[in-house]
């Protein structure tokens, strides 16, 4: 440490830059980061343009611009669909929703899970036991199946699907937070905090959450892709969006009957889902490696 030249430099943002440096050392993570950043940019630009009422898409995603299905060309990048709508515009215009759902679901699962799991972890006792048995039940059911049941009760629609996904998503975070909180709870600085007159709640916010959020963030990064994947499954089943609103999963479902006559129709939206999910998982892997090697 003393001989390390970098140690003398101001270390204010050392953590973040260090993590970024470790991340960019790996080609795969750069690729993942590039995908994620471009998806985020596209989502932001599209959303902004709708808010400002500016047209940036080449064509309207819902209007007929060509006579029936045309193969990909310079004019229609991904071709047009059976109703003559521009596929590229449709796919791009669906980006904000799919990305936002990923972040909203993971974000709320993170918050609920960290609070409940973290508290249960340091508190222990009957509360902890109840929470763990509760999550056990959730773990016995696949998320998609649970989401389907919740969809049946709540009804379809984007908001309801987001709620359904939140309901099934938080237990994993509660489990993770609880495990990490247990590790932290055995540290002496928690006891020192008790000796400073702090109760469970203060300890949770001042010591436990700051110390477990790193590991949880890594998990969350990996997880956003999974949410997008499952959400696309729900839209494929027609539970989230209703035509003519475009959505990736819904497009694959819509166009799969044309795979022999116009295979590009189902291929492009599917590829976009895969690319997004790959981006998030490569980035997540990279973040995980970077954290572990530190």
């Amino acid at each position: 440490m003393e001989s390390d030249k970098t140690a003398t430099k101001p270390r204010k943002s050392g953590r973040v830059t260090g993590a970024l440096r470790a991340l960019t050392r790996n080609k795969e993570s750069i690729f993942g980061l590039a995908i994620v950043v471009s998806f985020l940019l596209i989502a932001a630009v599209v959303e902004l343009s709708t808010l400002l009422n500016v047209t940036i898409l080449p064509y309207s995603p819902t209007a007929e611009v060509a006579p029936g299905a045309l193969p990909p060309s310079l004019k229609y990048l991904f071709g047009t669909d059976n109703l003559g709508r521009d596929l590229f515009s449709r796919i791009v215009s669906a980006t904000p929703y799919d990305i936002a759902i990923g972040y909203i679901v993971v974000g709320s699962a993170f918050v609920i899970g960290a609070l409940l799991g973290g508290y249960a972890g340091i508190r222990g006792g009957i509360l902890d036991e109840i929470l763990m048995r509760f999550t056990d039940v959730f773990f016995a059911l696949p998320v998609l199946v649970l989401a389907l049941v919740i969809a049946a009760v709540l009804g379809t629609g984007v908001t309801n699907m987001a709620i359904a996904l939140m309901i099934v998503w938080w237990p994993a975070y509660a489990r993770l937070a609880r495990g990490e909180a247990l590790k932290v709870a055995h540290q002496n600085y928690i006891e020192a905090a008790r000796l400073s007159g702090n109760g469970h709640r203060k300890i949770l916010f001042r010591h436990v959450l700051p110390n477990i959020s790193g590991t949880m963030l890594v998990y969350a990064t990996l997880d956003i892709g999974t949410v997008i994947l499952v959400y696309s499954g729900l839209t494929y089943l027609g539970l989230a969006v209703h035509p003519p609103t475009p959505d990736w999963g819904e497009m694959v479902s819509d166009y799969h009957s044309y795979i022999l006559s116009a295979p590009w129709l189902a291929l492009f939206p599917g590829l976009v889902i895969s690319l997004g999910v790959i981006g998030f998982s490569l980035l997540g892997d990279g973040v995980k490696d970077a954290q572990e090697t530190r």
Binding site: L229, S253, A266, L267, L271, L282
Partner: peptide, 21 residues
């Protein structure tokens, strides 16, 4: 495996249908 695992099953099915048909 990264590609396959990151793809929704219905999309893999579509690809297989296109390739194999």
């Amino acid at each position: 495996y990264l590609g396959a695992y990151s793809s929704p099953p219905y999309f893999i099915g579509v690809v297989l249908l296109i390739v194999l048909s």
